[in-house]
């Protein structure tokens, strides 16, 4: 992981981008999450008793915010936040650098979501405590990627997995990080999207050069009976500058009970949620649907990250 910045922060373990992690480091986090998962199922611990987590969400969030909150509290710690942006110093014009400098005096770690890309990286340069990136614009969302990997490892097989990633592959920030991380596990990646929502060419070029097996298609039928994992994404209205373009592609690749007749018995269906109409409600009760478990796994994975940056010292020196 480690984005180590200069000077006194040499040993500070920030979580900024999945690209900062090696496969070994990711495996250590996933292993730790597996150890902590029983606590996430309704248990409690004093691992982070007396520790304070600050959550700074400059953009709306439900799952990420609540699961960090739950993770911290399951481990015995407490959470502070600045409530709504409107009621905070941000609304008075305070810049992010100053906010971080101030809040890092109040907490032992900071979870940050911000609309500007690179905000978390910059914040790490002004913070005296670890920064955990909870999404920066269309940029990185590393804890989502880690919980996605954890889900695949638990519910399928991570090494050499055959995965179809479907939907908005251009604007969806979870996709780029996930594709990169899967390349570390020798995955066979099939990218399924309308032409106007394909992943950026720079990403596919990078991965092809690294030897990752990767295909692109507009037709889900080409891979639907072949893959182990189908990862669906919401086509996000707010990412489209042109509402007509949104309407044209919305509703593509909808999964129904009928679709499931053609898939492998052990296929798992994942989705970062919230869904719009990508997955029919009838699919929820099938053995293939793991998206609510995936959402739950955000808690043990974030418990692992919090414990490693604050509690047990495993991230403090010498890597994760």
């Amino acid at each position: 992981m480690l984005n180590r910045t200069a000077g006194l922060r040499d040993v500070m373990p920030h979580v900024i981008s999945i690209r900062d992690f090696s496969r070994d480091e990711i495996d250590r986090i996933l292993d730790r999450a597996a150890e902590l998962e029983p606590i996430a199922h309704g248990g409690s611990s004093d691992l982070l008793a007396g520790r304070i987590l600050a959550t700074l969400f400059h953009e709306p969030s439900t799952r990420t915010r609540l699961s960090f909150d739950a993770a911290m509290k399951r481990l015995g710690g407490s959470v502070i936040d600045f409530g709504s942006i409107e009621g905070s110093a941000v609304s008075k014009g305070e810049n992010l650098a100053d906010t971080i400098a101030v809040v890092s005096g109040y907490a032992d770690a900071i979870v940050l979501r911000h609309p500007k890309e690179g905000a978390a990286r910059m914040a790490s340069e002004f913070s005296r405590v670890p920064i955990i990136n909870a999404g920066d614009g269309a940029g990185q969302h590393p804890t989502q990627t880690l919980l996605d990997l954890y889900t695949i490892r638990k519910e399928s097989t991570l090494d050499r997995v055959k995965i179809a990633i479907v939907g908005d592959l251009k604007y969806g920030r979870t996709v780029h990080s996930l594709v990169y991380a899967l390349s570390l596990y020798n995955a066979e990646i099939h990218l399924v999207s309308p032409d106007q929502l394909k992943v950026p060419e720079s990403l596919t070029n990078d991965l092809s050069e690294s030897g990752t097996r990767i295909t692109e298609t507009t037709d889900l039928d080409e891979v639907i009976d072949y893959v182990d994992v189908m990862y669906l994404t919401r086509i996000q209205k707010e990412r489209f500058p042109d509402p007509n373009e949104y309407r044209t592609v919305a509703g593509s690749y909808r999964i129904t009970e009928e679709t499931l007749k053609r898939v492998k018995d052990d296929l798992i269906i994942m989705h970062p949620l919230p869904r719009v109409d990508e997955i029919d409600y009838g699919v929820d009760s099938s053995r293939h649907a793991v998206y609510f478990k995936q959402s739950f796994y955000g808690v043990p994975v974030r418990m692992a990250i919090l414990s490693m940056v604050m509690g047990d010292g495993t991230a403090a020196t010498g890597g994760w």
């Binding site: 810049n95 992010l96 650098a97 911000h114 609309p115 500007k116 890309e117 690179g118 905000a119 990286r121 910059m122 340069e125 920066d136 614009g137 269309a138």
Partner: peptide, 15 residues
């Protein structure tokens, strides 16, 4: 300067 208009470096932040 970064070509990405949404990059944090294209704001008033001290970076």
């Amino acid at each position: 300067r970064c070509m990405n208009p949404n990059c944090i470096t294209n704001t008033d932040e001290p970076v």
